[in-house]
Design a protein around this nucleic acid. Sequence first.
DNA 1: CTGAAAGCGCTAACAG
DNA 2: CTGTTAGCGCTTTCAG
Lengths: 345, 345
Amino acid sequence: MQKREPSSESRAVKLRDIAEAAGVTIATASRSLNDSYGVNPSTRERVLGVAARLGYRPNRLAQGLVTGRSQTLGLIISDIRNPFFAEVARGVEDAAYAAACDVVLCNSDLNPQKQNHYIRSLLGKRVDGIIMNSVATLGDAEQEYLVQSGVPVVLLNRGSGRSRFSTVSAENERGGALAAEHFLKKGHRRFAHFSGPRHHGNLGLRAKGFLQTVREHDPATPVTVLHGGHTLAGGYAMALKLFRDKQHAITAIFAANDAVAFGMMKAAIECGVRIPKDVSLIGFDDVEFAAIAHPPLTTIHQSKYEIGQAAVNVLLRLAKGQDKSPENRVLGVKLIERDSVRDLN
Amino acid sequence: MQKREPSSESRAVKLRDIAEAAGVTIATASRSLNDSYGVNPSTRERVLGVAARLGYRPNRLAQGLVTGRSQTLGLIISDIRNPFFAEVARGVEDAAYAAACDVVLCNSDLNPQKQNHYIRSLLGKRVDGIIMNSVATLGDAEQEYLVQSGVPVVLLNRGSGRSRFSTVSAENERGGALAAEHFLKKGHRRFAHFSGPRHHGNLGLRAKGFLQTVREHDPATPVTVLHGGHTLAGGYAMALKLFRDKQHAITAIFAANDAVAFGMMKAAIECGVRIPKDVSLIGFDDVEFAAIAHPPLTTIHQSKYEIGQAAVNVLLRLAKGQDKSPENRVLGVKLIERDSVRDLN
DNA sequence: CTGAAAGCGCTAACAG
DNA sequence: CTGTTAGCGCTTTCAG
């Protein structure tokens, strides 16, 4: 009889409702809920009781509007369908959950337009921080814009120079070196490296470590470096190209990541190239599927889930404290030997 | 000289700033930005110009507080690391992007506590809709709470009965039947089915279709049904159990999804069981990796990306229109024949 | 310990 | 076509 809502959906109960029901003012109600000091314990009990009974759920928008914090983190990655990012995302999510934050997921495909769009959207929603896999594709102006906005940012790759952003990444260069050492030890001398797009931070470092180690062993060693998408499709395309051109010479391929390695495997199946009999392969990431691929893939392991967790931890530190100085955290890698590398000795 | 911000981060420009700079009131500025009718074109031009120059970005929290809509969708799934969900999530994200919405990602592990937590959190943030893979684990009270909240909800599985929620799903039952038919046609007569947790909507339907088809063929056909996690680990565990108990009899296994199938493959490798020589296998989902698994996996294809897109579309329709009647959309499936099924004929 | 009041940034009547 | 004026729901001084 009191209201005539057209639908049955009950109006959300707000702070005022519970204040009235508890016989206090909205201010006291707020204080009770936010367990600030200086509230009579019995009053608070009463308020909390009422709130629970009425199923009160604070409007986070209103709360965020006044506090300036939204309890939301932004995660901008290339593509969640890459199992590597799925693992990272899960680490992010779990850590955020522990900190009572939600995370909005953005797939950029490394496309500058999309990246900018998402950055703007996230800033508009006043996220408490942004984790993104790269800013390399962004223009200087955009990067400046980002730092000027004041939101904490942590990158999932370590730029070439010292960046103004915090970073969390794996020992990419060392991983590349590990792959080279392994091939060398197994007697391989003719290499190809399937990299990602040019100037991709993490992937560039992997290439660097690989090439450097090979050259240290013998400067004359030939290494064919191919660039392409850092995806299964990219690996597939690069493999097809390689098989057509100079398959005869190469005995070992280092793929910039497992997705690329899988693409290469797919092409190998179709072209009748046997792994590791005809050509050996090492990947990077140690995605869950690497262990059950055919053949089980020798790859460089990096702690994806932990990278995600670490990223939100530094983000939270940045957001909380006054210490805004960028932090660069790097996690270890190791080679996981399986069956995709042939021993030529 | 005017303010003494400790850091260099410039205060965000707000509507009032651009209003002043454009020599109009905040109301006109707002109207210009939201391109509502009834604004002098030249005035609007001016406002838009100023806004662009100052890099104005509306505070979505404030906007959401007054409009009641947040331009944010919630997506609650089991685990983004399951490639099936990653595909769905990407479809969701892309469709949301097109509708100028962001999506917050929640991994529930099908855990009722987490699910409830996320639902509350999302409602607190006034999301415009929620897509979730199941409400089966929720209690009646929680389900009621959800519908009472009034937010549009679309489920990624079709419950047993007619639900109060909209759903978007694949022809799960038919998929199960397809798998059975294929096995039967290839001469198999002794089956095992690796299902997920009991009472899981989609997976239950797959089991039903499979069992029914087998029984129609010959009611006496034995089918060993195992329940476990609907993950790689779950499939691995079920396979180990099966291999220990009654491997001798079974010639064909239908896995509730590809992840489970992959787990079974992993166990098979370790136990020296050869696929398809010793035992045949059919999965469900047709995840990207199925094609390059060893052996390439015969599986039931469902359109994951499209499911995600469709979910957003019905959500948006629900959110927009006054037509709140639940819609149940179901997408087709088909069997993709690869090399994991042996022909016994 | 609690109340009153201002205001976060924006939209949406309602006048003019 | 544009200005004035209420709030949206909540936190937070500032008094008392």
